[in-house]
Simulated scan of single mutants.
Amino acid sequence: MPEKPQIKARKQVARTRLFCVEELELEFSNGEKRIYERMVSGGSGAVMIVPVTERNELVLIREYSAGTDDYQLAFPKGLMDDGESVFEAANRELKEEIGFGARQLQQLKSMTLAPGYFTHKMNLVLAQSLYPEKLEGDEPEPLEVVYWPISKIDGLIEQADFTEARSIAALLMVERYFKKG
């Protein structure tokens, strides 16, 4: 593995309520110098949860996505609060978004999205042994909860509103998990 470049300078070039763009002045081990820009995440990270019912159904949500200006079908997800563990955040998000908690949580993978440009990390968690419990969330409207049989995963991938890359990657990870088990 090559030696990581040295960060010679770092400065914030733009900031909004949600995003911070940082410029990095880098020097590589061979002496080459470059300027890179990246989106810097705030907070403690995020979780995406794949809930599975006792009836072998995946539990998804359909919610408005401002980036694509439409409703998307995806797995529950959210930011981790300061001091929260991955499992505490996953269970809280489940209760807020689908009205269930989980007695069994397993972290499957920590994933990145466009790591050349974003520092954001998403922790993928499998949630099983669900039980009803609801917490008030921060969504502006009620989320539609959708149950999807694991036996019909191919149909889920073909859904026109199931396009989020992180949810598709999560589906692949869970499908592999159940094939191994």
Rank of each mutant, 00 (worst) to 15 (best):
A74K: 12
Y36F: 10
E88C: 06
E93K: 12
M48R: 07
N56D: 13
L79F: 07
E54M: 15
E93Y: 13
L94W: 07
D69G: 13
G78A: 06
Q72P: 02
A46I: 08
A46D: 15
P51R: 05
G43L: 11
S44Y: 15
F75C: 01
P51L: 08
M39V: 07
V47K: 07
A74T: 08
V40R: 15
G83N: 05
A90F: 12
V52R: 02
Q72A: 02
M39G: 15
M39L: 13
V50Q: 00
L58A: 00
S65Q: 10
A74Q: 08
S65A: 14
Y36Q: 14
R34G: 02
V50L: 00
T68E: 02
M39K: 14
L73C: 07
Y64M: 13
A46M: 03
R38A: 11
P51N: 10
E63Q: 13
A46Y: 13
G45E: 03
L94G: 09
N91L: 13
S41N: 15
E57Q: 13
E93H: 13
L58T: 05
I49K: 00
P51C: 06
N91T: 14
I49W: 08
A66R: 05
F87C: 13
T68C: 09
T68S: 03
E54C: 14
A74E: 10
Y71P: 01
R92S: 04
L58G: 05
V47T: 08
K95A: 07
Q72C: 00
E88I: 04
E57H: 15
R92T: 07
